[in-house]
Design a protein around this nucleic acid. Sequence first.
RNA 1: UGGGGCGUCGUCUAAUGGCAGGACAUCAGACUUUGACUCUGAGUAUCAAGGUUCGAAUCCUUGCGCCCCAGCCA
Length: 562
Amino acid sequence: MTTTNETQGLNFLQELIEEDRRAGKHGGRVLTRFPPEPNGYLHIGHAKSICLNFGLASQYGGLCNLRFDDTNPVTEDTDYVESIQRDVKWLGFDWDDRKFFASDYFPKLYHFAVELIRQGKAYVCSLSAEEIRAYRGDFTTPGRDSPYRNRTVEENLDLFARMRAGEFPDGKHTLRAKIDMTSPNPVLRDPPIYRIRHAHHHRTGEAWPIYPLYDFAHCLSDALEGITHSICTLEFENRRVLYDWIVDNLIRGERPYQYEFNRLNLNYAVMSKRKLLKLVTEKYVSGWDDPRMMTLSGLRRRGFTPASIRDFAQRAGISKTQQLIDMGVLELCIREDLNETAPRAMAVLRPLKVVLENYPEGQVELLDVQNHPQKPEMGSRKVPFSRELFIEADDFMEVPAKGFFRLAPGKEVRLRSAYFITCKEVIKDASGNVVELRCTYDPATKGGDSPDGRKVKGTLHWVPGNAPTAEVRLYDRLFSVESPDADDAADFTTFLNPNSLQVITDARVEPMLAEVAPESRFQFERLGYFFADPKDSKPGKAVFNRTVTLKDSWVKEQGKQK
RNA sequence: UGGGGCGUCGUCUAAUGGCAGGACAUCAGACUUUGACUCUGAGUAUCAAGGUUCGAAUCCUUGCGCCCCAGCCA
């Protein structure tokens, strides 16, 4: 899955693991983990981490655990646990029976904490949250010791036991690691490792009134599972010394090590869970699986394939520099996949009626149309052709622009796999809108080839005049600026793209498309790749989501002419 | 401001003291029954200044810029 491109070197983590294996570290073993907190849905950035952790493991003959980092009961929920598993599986990865929860380790973590107290390296602090903050100092001024720092081991043991017993209200005490209040790294200024929280936990219920904090729980969970390489993102870099301090004090022998790589950012999108949550709860989008969301469930509903996302993660790459990937890369990945696999079909988004004046009234021909121009093995289908049809309104210009080689008065074009037609007359309504084209067809060009060898520049897609309708949802990037969250002053929602969703309820589609099963993928020729919506599409009432457009050098050309 | 990290084409990523390469994007062209796909070609980069060296993106020094850290979130 993570195949190393031959022209590329190894990334720094692959190098590091290879060095470790050469040196016989961990006995040559590789065990990684993907550690989501179940407080939101997975997004494309998580996909990079999943591909990395599972990919590295499989590349080096190891395994990757799925571990829910569920140490904060107030934000976490089983719905999230389920969505995360669904998404990881969908992406194509398997944790077998290695599904773990940090909450499974609560008893062991509690004993580790007691052990730390016994070593004189942790104490119960009775400062309030505000006081702790005040005592911590800031970047330039060192912190001051808590007045509770020198409680005896016995007193700490007693207090911690009573915290665990639920004797104290939230916030009354914390258990803190006793490290160094003057450290230049604020992470080491006696960080709290347990807090009192009388809350319902999605798995342990009311069993625990105290919960470990990330820094304490994560490294020890890694150690308990025998993780060798604990890979996280760059913002955890300053915490590595604390990771090491805890592990060094509590784990003997084989131990995990933390390494950091760059988080993936995409332009014209937001990636933080907090912001995605806000989009959902404040209804800027229809839900976590809104096809405009860069969540895995959103991308899935948009029509992205797991392979395209894996390819994307591979192309993004791993390093330690800030990464802002161009949306074009994601689009390339899905186009490349779907170009190979998606059968072609014809749909007209903005129908313009065409009447073929010389085509016999009442006649219907079933024309044979290829399902894929480069893949005859994908077969063909029949599309009914008759006197009345629809073409795309955009494919006609009464006064053709320079370089426009579609239909215009007096001009001849090809209808895909059908006939050459020539526009004879333009019919308008009272307000001057073009409502119908009167054309003639050349019976000798059946199938789209002219026996006399005359060429035609444009080929248009079409549907029969009695074509069924379908709903089509056109999606565009959710934000109109490259970095919606770069501006601290303005809320990111002010940069939402007002045109990110356009719903067409009366598109006309070739008959076969109206009966398609949900989750079918097609290329609508000349328009883009479309996906029958998993929730809303039904045979007889089709709803298509546009996954991505085709590249369009005509709109680009028009842009240049302006 | 103290600490931690990072600076290579517009973007992402290689080159591990020895020809700055690849991908995306861009531009030009070929092909085309999808203005798609495919193919061909082009331009574009080592943050800066010094130093070490036969030779520096790589090593050293100084400077500059960007990111992260002052939750009882992860």
